[in-house]
Amino acid sequence: MTEIAIKGLAKSYGDTAILENVNAHLADHEFCVVLGPSGAGKTTLLRILLSQEAATRGEVLIDGVPIDPEPQPDRGVVFQRYSVFPHKSVLANVMLGPQLRAAPLLGRLFGARRRAIRERAEALLQEVGLGEHLAKFPAQLSGGMQQRLAIAQALIMEPKVLLLDEPFGALDQSTKKAMHRLILDLWRKNRMTIVMVTHDIGEAFTLATRILMVDKARRDPHAPTAYGSTITEDIRLDPDKKPALHVVDESADESHTMTAIFARYRADAGDCVVDEHPNFQAAG
C-alpha cells in the first residue's frame, strides 16, 4: 500500500509564486500524470515530491509519514536527460543501487552476493528489452534505450513511488509508443505508484488513472508573478475501459512501427492529401 497525500503545498522563489494551495490525494497503485503549460510549475511539484526542492509551505505524506527532506530510495526517478551514469556500462548502471546500499564503504560487492544482484539486474534488463546490450555504455544506446535503462536502474531499488519528469519528451513517436506499453506493463507488474510530468495531453490520457492539471487559477495582469499555479483539473480514469495501446507488433523494429503510425495519420488526413508521389509522376 502506498498512498500519497499532498497537503496545502506552496512554493515561491522570493516574490515569485510558483505553486500555491496544491492539494491531492493519490490512492494506492495510482498512475498519476501531471499536465500543465510550460512554466506552470509541474516540474517544481515533482521536485518537491522527490525532495530535490523543499516546499515553502505545506507537506507531502507517504502512507501518513512526511517524506524525508533528502532524495531517498523510496522514491525512484527518471529525468528527461542525464538519468543514467555515462561512465558505467548498462549492466553496471543497474547493479549500482543495490551495491551502494549493501556496501557503504566500497559501494561494490563480491562473490555470491554480487552474482545475486547481477542475476536480478540481468533479468530486469531483459524485461525492459536491453538484454542484448549489457556491456554497452549509455552513449552507444539510442534515446529510447537510455530511458529504458534509467527505468530499470530505478526499478531495481523497488521504490514505492516512481517519479518521471517528461521521460519520453525527447523520443520519436514510434519509440514513445513502445515506451508507453513498457511503462504500463511495469506499472501493473510492480504494483507501484507512478507520478509522471508531461505536456503531451495524448500521453496523459493513454497512460493515466489520474490526471492533474497544474495551471494558474488566478491572474493579476499587473503582477504576473503574484499568484502561483494550483490544481485546476483533477480527473480519474478507469484503465480497463481504455482502448488497447496501438502498438502494432512488439517485435517490430523502429522503422516498421514508424511506417504503421504514418499510415494511421495518413488515413486520418483523408482529403487533406491532394497528391501522392508527385515526384514519381513527374519522373514517369
Partner: peptide
C-alpha cells in the same frame, strides 16, 4: 556534473562518500 546525476545517485541510496567515489571521480577523470 548535471544536477540530475547527483539526485539520481541519492535515489539509489548513495552516501556523499559513495557519490564522490562512484559518480564524481570517474566523470571528472
Amino acid at each position: 556534473i548535471p544536477r540530475e546525476q547527483i539526485v539520481k545517485a541519492q535515489t539509489l541510496g548513495a552516501s556523499t562518500w559513495q557519490m564522490m567515489v562512484h559518480v564524481v571521480f570517474p566523470q571528472i577523470l
